[in-house]
Amino acid sequence: MADPAPRKAIRVEGLRKCFPTPDGKSETEVFGDVWFDIHEGEFVCLIGHSGCGKTTLLNILAGLDKPTDGTIIVGDKEIDGPSLDRAVVFQGHALMPWMSTMKNIAFAVTSRWKNWDKAKVRAHCQKYIDMVHLTGAEEKRPSMLSGGMKQRVGIARAFSIEPKILLMDEPFSALDALTRGSLQDELVSICKATHQTSFMITHDIDEAILLADRIVLMTNGPEARVCEIVKNTLPKSRTRQNMHTDPNYYPMRNHLIEFLVNRSKSFRDEISAATYDPRNPPVVEPAASPDRAA
């Protein structure tokens, strides 16, 4: 018997977002007619140039902003505002500076489980502090932590409320390469262990290849659209150290670079060719030729 189809955790249906022009007489469409799904336990990345509305789209997913048109269904319910079932890791750490590591995480935990006693809250927080390798920094305030450590606290805080969906807005973009790589490895490990449904915005192609099961490609804004959805053809066992040795790595990477350099700008020509259905964006699987793969 075939395995049942994975359940859809998120359905983005006909999403459109406009902002008024400075004179207030008209509006500019940032993106429109956006359709895609995210399955339970899946890690999806979104790539696109600045100005295509990536952060705006994530804010709508988080319930922090509202679309002009369209809807987002989480589970079987249309979202209407923020929810503890959707945790967000922002570009900045967004920690409360007067609180310690433990208290920043406990603030989130007690928001979700209001009836827990202090001992249970502390034990739960400690589990996630240990998970992101911050043991010993429990009582340190953000001013005493490095940039990478602050982001670890933000990640621990997001995971601590055990959300159904984790939303990330370029959480490692401001970090040095070594720290970013270390946090990517931790995120891979945590998501594998928890089967966390995740949606992440990134500009980093190699980050997307490492983390994502599928990669959503957005065209340039304004009037951005989903160009296509790329299925990651590298094995799930990939790591930063070995993924470049897989025969599908360079076809995948070259496809994404070609999109960012050329196709993201020329996509309107593809739409005019009447071969594009926004409800069913094309799914591609870049892979090496059989001769090369062998």
Results as ranks from 00 to 15, higher is better:
E42Q: 15
I79A: 06
D37I: 03
V34R: 06
D33C: 05
D69S: 14
V44G: 08
I73G: 10
I72G: 12
D65M: 06
G70D: 09
F43K: 02
L57E: 07
G48R: 05
I60Q: 03
G51Q: 09
F43W: 12
K77Q: 10
S50V: 15
K66A: 13
L57K: 05
D80Q: 12
G41E: 10
L46N: 08
L57I: 04
T56L: 10
W35S: 00
T68W: 04
D69A: 12
F43E: 04
I79M: 00
G48P: 11
G75T: 10
I38Y: 03
H39K: 11
D76K: 07
G75E: 13
L57H: 03
I79H: 07
G70I: 05
G51F: 10
K77W: 00
F36H: 11
E40T: 13
G53A: 02
L61D: 05
T71C: 08
E78Y: 06
G51K: 08
K77N: 07
F31C: 02
I72M: 12
V44M: 01
L58P: 09
L61T: 04
D69T: 14
D33W: 06
S50G: 06
T56A: 09
G41D: 12
I38C: 11
E78T: 03
H49W: 05
G53V: 10
I60D: 06
G63K: 08
E42F: 13
N59A: 14
L58D: 01
L58H: 11
G81F: 03
G48M: 00
T55G: 05
K77A: 09
G53T: 00
P67E: 00
L64T: 14
I73T: 01
E78K: 08
E40G: 05
E40Q: 13
L58K: 07
T56Q: 04
K77S: 12
S50T: 15
A62H: 01
V74N: 11
G75R: 12
G48C: 07
L58T: 05
I79C: 01
V34L: 15
F43V: 12
L64C: 10
D37Y: 03
G75W: 13
I72T: 05
D33E: 04
P67M: 07
F36P: 10
